[in-house]
Design a protein around this nucleic acid. Structure first.
Lengths: 216, 216
DNA sequence: CCTACCGATCGGTAGG
DNA sequence: CCTACCGATCGGTAGG
């Protein structure tokens, strides 16, 4: 419980961050706390069903107070989705720089793909579901990032086919299938369940290698 | 172009059904035309960004006029999603009744799954994306239907493993992966493109058989 | 099937 | 960081 200036008493909603704690921190940290609260709500009920007042309430604040830390509700969504895609692309680039073997590249790329969809299902869920909620020009920018991410996997598959280690009639379809597998993990994965993110990743790597009929 | 009572002239939006034609038909057909217009808009911009006025405008009607044909905007979404899931389950049941061979059941189930996601990407897209937009008790009912659909595939995989024709450590994960592949088709498939729905289905059947390492 | 309108909700601003 | 409030949007109803 915290006490407001007016002397009114409010109780913190379940799972909420104590703003009194956050307030003691630097502005970037506060901004991050707001973004995290928004992400949770966007994932639970969707961007359009989440109001500024909802986000504030989950931090024990009033809605308008959030504007000390954010530019707009829309920008909150843009940042969430953009950061998520940048993270994925950075992971892919690290892999591509670390080995030339298409089999190993595929294995590690599926690992990154699944792990980062399982590590924080909220981000993955919001990024894929709320793309149509983005206004221009942000939507175009985000789609370009997603295309880049997809293209990086496709190129691995195409190089594997050219090298004779993968057997695929249509690498584009295989890329879609493998991407879909990983994205979908965010729809059911719960941390603390019977399977860890690493368990799921290992199994999905096997699925992907079978799907492309990797040699060896 | 049609002329209203006021003498105001309106032009039909691109791709819209001519309501003058629809109006000559029976009430169930009119209701179907409204549902189809709603489905197109829900798929394009999402349920919450589509207003009753938008749906009306796409049929060259005013928003309130729709209430002669529908109960509520929410019921429109419920019907779209429910019908789609019933269609899929019916397809699965036909397959399960037609053969006992798990390999053949899997092949046909993937065919139904992919074909019906490709045949009308709008339905598939809306059904998966707008589940959180459903209110209770409809949401619970729809989730139960989706679980039934998923369970039917899982059972095929489990029977195949028991019969020794599939090789899987975790059939549940394989079921998720195969379902994800098909659902995702609605995110990129366009009728009239280089690949037909049947082409995609054939390729995805192969992917699924590889993924479970089907014998034979 | 239309116009007029109600009540509710929402993002964001003013001002302290 | 808060209260008060503006302007816009929306689902749905009344009444013809």
């Amino acid at each position: 419980m915290t006490r407001t200036g007016e002397g009114r008493v409010r109780t913190l909603p379940r799972g909420a961050v104590a703003w009194a704690t956050v307030r003691a921190m630097s502005e970037p940290t506060r901004k991050e706390a707001v973004r995290d609260a928004a992400l949770t709500l966007f994932a639970e009920r969707g961007y359009h069903r989440t109001s500024i007042n909802d986000i504030g309430a989950s931090l024990n604040l009033r809605g308008p107070s959030l504007y000390n830390h954010i530019d707009s509700k829309h920008q909150l969504l843009v940042d969430i989705v953009t950061d998520f895609l940048h993270l994925g692309i950075a992971g892919q680039e690290r892999i591509l720089a670390s080995t030339d073997d298409p089999v190993e590249q595929l294995r590690q790329m599926v690992d990154v793909h699944v792990s980062y969809n399982a590590a924080d299902p909220r981000q993955s869920y919001v990024a894929t579901r709320e793309m149509s909620s983005l206004g221009e020009p942000d939507r175009t920018r985000v789609v370009a990032l997603r295309d880049e991410y997809e293209h990086n996997l496709l190129e691995v598959l195409e190089r594997g086919v050219a090298a004779g280690v993968f057997d695929l009639d249509n690498p584009q379809l295989a890329a879609y299938a493998i991407l879909a597998m990983g994205i979908h993990v965010s729809a059911w994965f719960k941390a603390g369940g019977p399977l860890s993110g690493a368990d799921v990743s290992r199994e999905y790597q096997e699925f992907a290698l079978r799907l492309v009929r990797a040699r060896g």
